Simulated scan of single mutants.
Amino acid sequence: MLDDARREAVTALNAWSEDQAEQELTACCASRRWAAALAAGRPYGGWAELAAAATAGIKALRWSDVLEALDAHPRIGDRAAGKSREAEWSRAEQSAAASADAAVLGALARANVEYERRFGHVFLICASGRPAEQILADARRRLGNDAAAEQQEVRTELAGIALLRLERLGQAGVGA
């Protein structure tokens, strides 16, 4: 099933116009520079090539482009508003964390605030399937990072989210 979704994502992405490809890709990562670069790199011969390009593209972004992408992400524990595909995906990705008890959710909210004070942007983590306790432990650990180490972790997490969402483009049959 996952292989089918990945194949469908590559097929759709290769078939879209450049404008549509960029628009659809911004639901996966809100950096316009990343979406444009990925759209311009088509056609992709398969999932491995697309995934490699997506990951390399995030690593190559200027920090200002990463911040643009982060602006589209709600805080961990906050429910993304709206009916957009990106908001729906965000709610699904955070669903495991949302079921935690009030004490853990409160601690996570405090860690979010402390993280934002320290680093100046939202705490980003690929939350899909991860319990709130694990996310909280990662937030606390990452608060000990220096700025350079944290920027690398943010890029890794952003790439993970983008790849997950690229797979979902195929599953949703977007552009079909």
Rank of each mutant, 00 (worst) to 15 (best):
I161K: 13
R130T: 15
W89E: 15
V122A: 08
A111S: 05
A139F: 01
L166N: 06
V104G: 12
H121D: 04
D101G: 15
L166H: 10
E153L: 05
A147P: 10
A147D: 12
D101M: 07
A111H: 02
A98F: 13
A107K: 14
G106V: 09
A139T: 00
E93F: 09
A147R: 14
C126D: 13
S99V: 11
A109T: 11
D101N: 14
P131R: 15
A102Y: 11
A139C: 04
A98S: 14
A149D: 04
R140H: 07
E150S: 02
L105F: 10
E157P: 03
Q152E: 15
F123T: 00
L108M: 14
A107G: 13
R155P: 08
H121T: 03
R110C: 10
A137L: 05
G160L: 01
E157V: 04
L169E: 09
A98I: 06
A147L: 14
T156C: 06
L136R: 07
V122G: 02
L163I: 15
G160T: 00
V154D: 01
I135C: 04
W89G: 09
A102W: 13
Q151C: 01
G106E: 14
P131Q: 13
A100C: 01
L169N: 10
R140P: 07
R141E: 07
A148L: 12
L164Y: 11
D138L: 02
S99A: 15
L164K: 06
